[in-house]
């Protein structure tokens, strides 16, 4: 298992998938920042002064992070960002679940809030966090990620 997770090909596949997920999530949210702000307000965690700022900035942050993941820019910082986002999302969802709130996370646009969907979102956040942690760990232990990727591609093509 450890071998698979540290496999360079696995990371090369994981990165664009994770990036695409974040770009999609960001684009969906930018379509209707007011709806996303309503979703954030539903969690009853933040003051009104912060909600709209978060509803506007978070989608942009997700899109930037997604693009950087795909093109392979500053991967340690980007994967750390994804990890922090996933932890924050998971904590917010966990807190809403424990308080018995039925909220739509607004992660991928609007939807009817159900407890099942909230658990699904929580599970997805955990998976995203694990994926980010795998990438961060790999790129933390190599000084220059670029040649490693080239090496991986080179190995596979028999160069």
């Amino acid at each position: 298992m450890k071998k698979v997770l540290s496999n360079r090909w696995f990371i090369l596949v994981l990165r664009p998938i994770l990036g695409a997920v974040f770009i999609y999530a960001g684009i969906v949210k930018t379509q209707s920042p007011q709806s996303f702000a309503d979703n954030i307000a539903g969690f009853q965690l933040l003051p009104n002064e912060v909600i709209n700022l978060l509803a506007l900035s978070l989608p942009v942050f997700e899109i930037i992070v997604g693009v950087m993941l795909i093109i392979g820019l500053q991967l340690r910082i980007v994967s750390m960002s994804v990890l922090i986002l996933s932890i924050v999302f998971a904590l917010a969802l966990g807190s809403a679940l424990t308080r018995g709130l039925n909220v739509d996370c607004g992660c991928f646009g609007d939807g009817k809030p159900t407890v099942f969907k909230m658990w699904m979102s929580l599970g997805r956040d955990v998976l995203l966090g694990i994926a980010a942690l795998i990438i961060w760990r790999l790129y933390s232990f190599i000084s220059n990620p670029r040649p490693v990727e080239s090496e991986a591609l080179g190995d596979a093509s028999g160069v």
Partner: peptide, 21 residues
């Protein structure tokens, strides 16, 4: 260093988001 990078990325996102808004 990574945490500083995350903070810078978040700050840049806020600036871009406010401009787009």
């Amino acid at each position: 260093k990574d945490m500083i990078g995350v903070w810078l990325l978040a700050t840049a996102s806020i600036c871009v988001a406010l401009l787009i808004n």
